[in-house]
Structures are given as C-alpha cells and as structure tokens.
Design a protein around this nucleic acid. Structure first.
Lengths: 355, 355
DNA sequence: CTGTTAGCGCCTTCAG
DNA sequence: CTGAAGGCGCTAACAG
C-alpha cells in the first residue's frame, strides 16, 4: 500500500505539501502541484481514509440498520438512502436485524464504533430500553425510519401508520365486510404492526364492530407452519370475509396460503396489505394496500439526518403521505349475512388475543 | 467520545492494560481485569475502530458493489453476503452503480480507499479496461459475483449464463416456437446479457433457426419509451411468438407492455426471463425462467473471498447450478405455421442488430 | 503481570 | 510557499 510519504518522496517534497494539494489548499505553487499530481498518478496513490478520519474525525460514512434487504419496502428505502448519501460523498454501512430485536443494539453499537457520522435506523422496537437509551444518550445524529418514536427529541421519517390502517379498514367496511381479521408478523418484531393494529381497531369500533381477532403468524418461518396458522384462522365457523395484513409480503403469503386451502381471493376471502411494494401490482388479483413512498422516505431521512448533522434543524418526526391503493384482492362482500353484523362479532376464534 | 485513556484513568492502569483485557490477552490479573471492565461499563466505552484499524491494518469490513438494491436478484445476493459477513464479524459497505459503467471504478476506488479487506463486485463489464486493471493490480482480495471473468486469476461466482440460456431457448423451441426474439437491457450495462444472448444464438443455430433479433430496450427508462420499444418488436408482420428476456424484471415489464398492447401472454406471445426471483412465481401467468440461487451465491462468494483473504485458496470461478423453472408465461406454440419455420427466419425486423 | 514507547497514515498548526 | 512536528485512538513489542 502506497502512502502519502511515498508520494512526497517521488514528488520531492514534504508530506504536508502533498496533503495540501490533495485537499485543495490554496497555498501551493502550480509547479509543485503538478509534480505532486503526477506522482499520485504514477503511484496510483489513494488516500487512506482511516488515517484521515482519525485525524479529522470525519468518516464520511453513514450507518444503516434495516430488518431485511429482501423485503422490497426496505430495499427501496435503502436505494433512496444510498443515492442521497452518495450524492453527498458519503458511503453507507448496511446491517440487517432480520427482525430479531436483540440484534438491533448490537448493530447500532458496531456502527457507532466505526465512527459513522450519522445513523438511519429501522428497529424492531423503538420503545425497547436499550434502544431508547441509545437514542437519548448518543451524540451521533440519528433518524428513525418507519419507526414512530416514543419520546420527543428523536428524529423520524414515517407515515401515520395508525391513520393509514384506519383508512384501509374503513375501506373494507365500506365494501360490506363485517368480519374482518387482522394478521401480522410477531408484534414484538415491529412497532408498525402494533400501531397499524390500533388503526384497525379504531375503524372497527367506529363502525360499531368488534375487532374480530389479531393473530401473529410466523412471518419468517417455514411454509408449513405458516399454512397451518392461516388455516386455523379461516377454517372456522363464521370465518372472516376479509383479512388485513400488517405488510404486503405477509399479505401475498396469505393469499398463497388461502389458495392452497382452496379459497378464492377475493370471492371467498378478501385480503389487503400495507407498504405498496411493486409486486402487489403484478400479482393477480392485484393487492389492495396502503402505499408509502419508500424511496422518497429513504431520501428524506438522509436529508433530515444531514440537517441534524450540521445543526440546521432539530429532531422532529416527518410524516409522509400515504395513499390507499385499490386492488382486486379486496372486493365487495357478497353479503348473505344478516344486516346487523355485530351479532357475528366475537372473541378471538383462535390463537392468542391481543388487546 | 470516550477513549481508551479515559478507561485507563478510571481503572487506574495504563492504556496497554486496557487494550489487553479488551482484546482478551491472557496475561492479566483477574483483579485489574475486573476494574477495567467496570470502568468500560461505567463510561460506556466502545473501541474506536479507526484507531485500531490504523494500527492492525484490519478493518473487518468488506466492500460490496451491485447494480441496484431494488432488483430482487441483487437484494437476495446482498442478503447472503451480509449474513455470511456478519457471521464472521465483518461489516459491509454497500455501493450501487445503477448499471452505469462509469460508476463502477469510482465505487471500487472509494471502497479500497476505506481499507476494506475484501471486495465483492457485480460490475457492468468485467472486460472494461479500468476494471481489468484493478482486478489485476489490486492486492485486496476480490471476487466477482454474477460476472464471468475475462481472464485467469480472477475469482468469481456465477452460473453458466450461456448454457442456461441455451437450455431456456431449447425449451422454447421444444414447445414449438420458431420465431423467438431476444430482448435485453443495454448490452453495455451487463456482460450477463451479452453472454446469455450467445446461448440463445447457439440454441437457435442448433435447431437450424436463424436468431430472430436481439433488441436492447431502455431497461431503467420511462414506461412510455419502454412501451414503444416493445411495440416496435411485436407489432410487425410475422411477429415473434416467444420473447426471451435477459432478466426477470425485464420479462415482467415486457409482459405488462404486451398486455397494454392488447396481447395475451402466453396465447399471443410467450415470455421467459432469467434469474428466478420470487415475484415470478406470484404473478399470473407465472414467469418461466432460469433460477439461479442468489442468496447462496452471495454466501458462496463471501466464503470464497475469505478463503482468498487467508490464502487457503486460489482465485477460481465457481459455477453454481441453474435450473429451468417452467411457468405459464411460456406455453406451447399453437402452430398455424408451415412446418419449416426457417422460411420465417429473417434478419432483424427492427432496431440495431447484435452480432 | 503491567507500564512505557513507538508508530499506523494523515492533517494541521507553526515556523521558516 | 513549503517543511517540521505533534497527535488522532489504538496495538504490540519491549522492559521492568
């Protein structure tokens, strides 16, 4: 590895001079400047970022933590992040938690240990003690993405998850559904799932309906377990006519499971998701969902992060606009039911009850 | 930021002692060990990776370059990479080229400037001069992913793109198709696309057919341009009955465009892709394609990289197994054509000809 | 067993 | 305009 000293030797000057031309210091004669540049080219020299960073305390690197990179919604936000960071000359260090809460703080520790100048976080639970402590104590600027902060003074970019799911559930109700279930991955793995559930409950109550059930299913588990879980939900007396899923990937799996169980979507069962990933448009029937602007959210989060970094803005929660996207998976209920649907509402049919 | 000196002060010892206990050196008394650990906990101290790396020349970081993180095939390989790297205690710095050749070498430069201990590359063109030079001259271990190296001594993990497309084209031919077209993103943006095209040509020639055409379409461009490009290909006299696409994302867009043009897939036009992304299974009709084990390829690439790093293996090309995945998008040709299809074969109908 | 010391590669006053 | 020198945080001999 060639160092700044090698360049200085070849250019016949001191390393400080090399440093100056490399960093565009104005006080250098054109002649030596040329020689230095020539030496750099000859030797194929590249500054060692570590040495520089150690001195300047600037790593020009951002840390990113997301649950998974194969979930298109996070891939999109990552794309937005990467683009916005690169535009400013920053690299990103990417870590994933795979929805495992215990990996969150480990990842955050590793990131800050690397001296990243800012951090973008999608954690499983922003209310978790260690996470809160970090958010409060750290001096490295930090913005939550998709998470909704539990205390003031924490920056975040998200949609209004509660309101969005309320909108979605209202739509299902408007379409004549009365027995509507909510299904999510492990609540412990996603504050979004919990908040969205609240929105669902609010809509049900508003319509004078009892929330049917909220069931956690093994989102990242094996197909066979997943199928069993869905089966337990829908193969009951007075089954739900619509299922709201905490995210699109889950919804797509549910549709697949329903089909395996011999149910037609949406004829026998309506299904809706949340996120608005592209795949939803391509499948048949297309997936009804809530769209959130994932790439723009990533970009916005970086913008906010840089504003935080240079002190031009205080931590705040930026709410992005969401939008209901209609789709064939959520259709009008062909009601052979009695008018007063409340009589059908009941305690959880199966599985643990939430709330 | 608290440093090792702060810890030493608080523990009442020298920084070297702190360093020793932190790095698990055996020669430390249990007593001081305790004191140090306590001080670390009290102060919430974390080693500064930069200082350590500067000394040890070990960054425990890998560099990754992929075209895009929103293409599921690269997202999957990235997931495999991240997992395998983390298992070994390595972080990854992720850069994307967005299929722009000029961004490849810039990214590689930035990566090595950060002192990454190894690099995983999916470049637009491994034959490009600057890339070749880097591959040949660099002392940082490096493995290509998806790319097929153009010279010996370069490590790579890929499938046999030529052979795979040959298999795919054979399948189309077996299904009765004679007028088969090949469509890809910009050849300049993907050596895979070019090599796959060769496989297509080989299959056609083997069957005594003339390659119909190979057309580059604006893969990352606007919908309207894309539609026009597809329209120009299929709205001709004696249109192709099957279209082989250089990747799945492209194939899915083609199906969408065909539909917009009023064509039914596969009744009017069969379409096949390459990659085997999950979405392909979920759309209707399901996408016929060549599956490559993206996540495993990422993992394998990291394994190979580490073997390179510790010198236990020499650069080599690892060919992973591919598999034809049947799908509704590629159906038997309902031939009202004359038996000798060669009479229909012709020079490119439209667009620039390749090869 | 523990402290002292010499850098790793680079930037940045401070003199000259 | 340029060189010399100190030090960023840490590790690794080398003494003691």
């Amino acid at each position: 590895m060639t160092t700044i000293q090698d360049v200085a030797d070849r250019a016949g000057c001191a390393i400080s001079t090399v440093s100056r031309v490399l960093n565009g210091s104005p006080h250098t004669s054109e002649a030596t400047r040329e020689r230095v540049l020539q030496a750099v080219a000859d030797l194929g020299y590249r500054v060692n970022t570590l040495g520089r960073s150690l001195k300047t305390k600037q790593t020009r690197a951002l840390g990113v933590l997301i649950p998974s990179v194969t979930n298109p919604v996070f891939a999109s936000s990552l794309a937005g992040i990467e683009e916005a960071a690169r535009k400013r000359g920053f690299d990103i260090i990417v870590t994933t938690s795979n929805y495992a809460p215990e990996r969150d703080s480990a990842a955050i520790g590793a990131l800050s240990s690397r001296g990243v100048e800012g951090v973008l976080l999608t954690v499983t639970d922003p209310a978790e003690a260690e996470i809160r402590a970090f958010l409060r104590d750290t001096e490295v600027p930090c913005v939550l993405l998709y998470n909704q902060p539990v205390e003031k003074g924490v920056a975040a970019v998200t949609v209004d998850n509660r309101r969005a799911t309320l909108d979605l559930a209202r739509e299902a109700i408007r379409l004549g559904h009365r027995r509507i279930g909510y299904i999510s991955g492990a609540f412990g793995s996603s504050d979004r799932a919990r908040i969205r559930y609240e929105g669902y409950c609010a809509a049900m109550e508003e319509a004078g309906l009892e929330p049917l059930f909220a069931r956690e299913v093994p989102f990242v588990g094996r197909d066979i377990d997943f199928l069993a879980a869905v089966s337990a939900l829908v193969e009951v007396k007075d089954p739900p006519t619509a299922l709201l899923c905490s995210n699109d990937l889950l919804a797509i799996r549910v549709i697949g499971a329903a089909r395996t169980l011999g149910l037609s979507v949406p004829d026998d069962l309506s299904v809706a998701g949340f996120d608005g990933i592209d795949i939803g448009r391509m499948i048949a029937p297309s997936l009804a969902t809530i769209e959130q602007p994932a790439t723009a959210m990533g970009r916005t989060a970086v913008d906010l992060l840089f504003a935080l970094m240079n002190g031009s803005r205080d931590p705040e929660t930026v709410l992005m606009a969401h939008r209901f996207r209609p789709g064939g998976s959520l259709a009008a209920h062909r009601g052979e039911d009695q008018p007063d649907a409340r009589r059908d509402a009941r305690a959880p049919i199966n599985g643990k009850q939430n709330r």
